[in-house]
Write a protein that binds this DNA or RNA. Structure first.
Lengths: 113, 113
DNA sequence: CAAATATTCAACTTTATGGTTGATTAATTA
DNA sequence: TAATTAATCAACCATAAAGTTGAATATTTG
């Protein structure tokens, strides 16, 4: 009964932002706007290839999009997909809080009898 | 200038919810309240040990807490730490949206000159 | 056209992750 | 007290993840 597709989408999305470098890349892109791969890479203490891979991971999670002009690839943040994750968190918290409130009512003693 | 401690806390938290089984465990705990390890494990198609490990991961991310009575360990969801993740998402989205709005103003043509 | 540049692809290494089984520890119950 | 039960620990395995280097592929520029 659990939506496997949503579940795996959620896993991919969450994993993609679980890495510090990728979170930094996203921050950088949100703050400074679209940038080329080499530009992005210059900020990190790792090979261009490593950064290129991180970008591909963000891309396949649909958190960035790529536009290619000749040999230059422009990478741009696209946080629409954040909604999926945020919904999950919101939903979890509401279930959790509901139980706590119900428990609280029980402990305080139901007034209705 | 980046807070390394916060960063690694965030990574640990996000990683801990990036796994489907752990998300399911959390859901189960939020919906049904505290449960023992064996009870929890009975719902999954994997060994008790595997589930026990998942619980430990959630525990060290401080998303569940454990209370021991004799040989029974009661596990309870505790989503207070969600705030950290939610703050990050909120902050990212606001940076992203700010840039988009600024860009939009630019394209529409600044009225101020 | 040759050299330089931007990027990815491929192969490899190391370490982390998610799972297993078998043994151990501690608490309960018959 | 012996057997059962709840849970972890330890060692292991397979796969995934994060990084490296070197080569390949386009595109641009001198």
């Amino acid at each position: 009964m659990v939506d496997d597709y949503l579940e795996s989408q959620l896993s991919e999305l969450i994993k993609s932002v679980s890495d510090t470098t990728r979170r930094q890349l996203l921050t950088q892109l949100c703050q400074q706007g679209p940038q080329r791969v080499t530009e992005l890479a210059s900020c990190y203490d790792m090979s261009l290839n490593a950064v290129s891979k991180h970008i591909k991971i963000l891309e396949s999670a649909q958190l960035v999009k790529r536009t290619t002009y000749g040999r230059d690839h422009w990478i741009e943040a696209d946080l629409h997909r954040f909604e999926l994750i945020e919904n999950w968190f919101r939903q979890m918290k509401s279930i959790w809080e509901l139980r706590l409130e119900a428990l609280d009512r029980t402990l305080t003693g139901e007034k209705n009898d």
